[in-house]
Design a protein around this nucleic acid. Sequence first.
DNA 1: CTCGCTGCAAAAAATTTGCACATTG
DNA 2: CAATGTGCAAATTTTTTGCAGCGAG
Lengths: 149, 149
Amino acid sequence: MPEHPDYEGFALSKLKEAGHRITMPRLAVVRVLARSERPLTPNGIHSEIAATGGKIDVVSVYRILSTLSSLGLVHHIGSVDAYSACQLDTGHGHGCEHLICTSCGRVEELPVADASSIAVTDQSDKAGFSVQAIRVEVLGTCPECQAEA
Amino acid sequence: MPEHPDYEGFALSKLKEAGHRITMPRLAVVRVLARSERPLTPNGIHSEIAATGGKIDVVSVYRILSTLSSLGLVHHIGSVDAYSACQLDTGHGHGCEHLICTSCGRVEELPVADASSIAVTDQSDKAGFSVQAIRVEVLGTCPECQAEA
DNA sequence: CTCGCTGCAAAAAATTTGCACATTG
DNA sequence: CAATGTGCAAATTTTTTGCAGCGAG
């Protein structure tokens, strides 16, 4: 049950669109990200690929992540210092919200409903701040983990 | 014009309160953080102290940051991978919002007005998610930098 | 005095860079 | 065939750990 319906296709077309080549290492990274329910570190991605019989250098993982990142295809999640596939159209310039379960580590990605309002709403004295992007990380416990407890 | 009125006093009493000793290295780190308008990396803090004639090992900076962090006295800002002084009372368990100017690097810290509502409001289907903490990073341009442009 | 904290030395981990070769389009 | 991207080796940078001695309370 991949978190992203067709992240692979989505990512590959974005890559092409940006004039990048579809290579095996890139495919491998994209696939691993697509299937992972939790954010992965560069090392995690590398081992994941290795575990699946794939062969790729960690260095390439870094480079590929950086490429994907510039295309908005992955998000670096600060609070856990790892990367997660991102399929939201970042075209509208806002950002997205991550629900991070501190128990199972799973990450849900959601569009920030009304990005700029978060910033502006609660502080009228900061209203002059022009919002380019927003990143929201919500740490907590997902329903499943609550049930287990 | 320190961003934090009396961060030094605030931090020191929090440290004591938690049974920690007030040492010179800790004082130095707290002061640098209090006076910095932008988030600093461990290295940045170290050089800043050195520049002021202070003498401290980077290792200590790491350890001190970790202590301060556990007391909620500093926040690690993911999108810039640096630390910023934090004076908000984190007692209410929510979190805080950072306005980060991508032009000058300055950071404003604000309490998240209605933390859980951010998460719950915009996705009723995720309502089962129990929120422990929220981190919001708003990237954009501050009024001053807009004026300059 | 005593225990916590620091500095120093060193190890471990993470990230970046240079370059020759392989591969995609 | 012509870039572009990869692997490998190695350098850098960042972060962690162990331990003996200093110093705050």
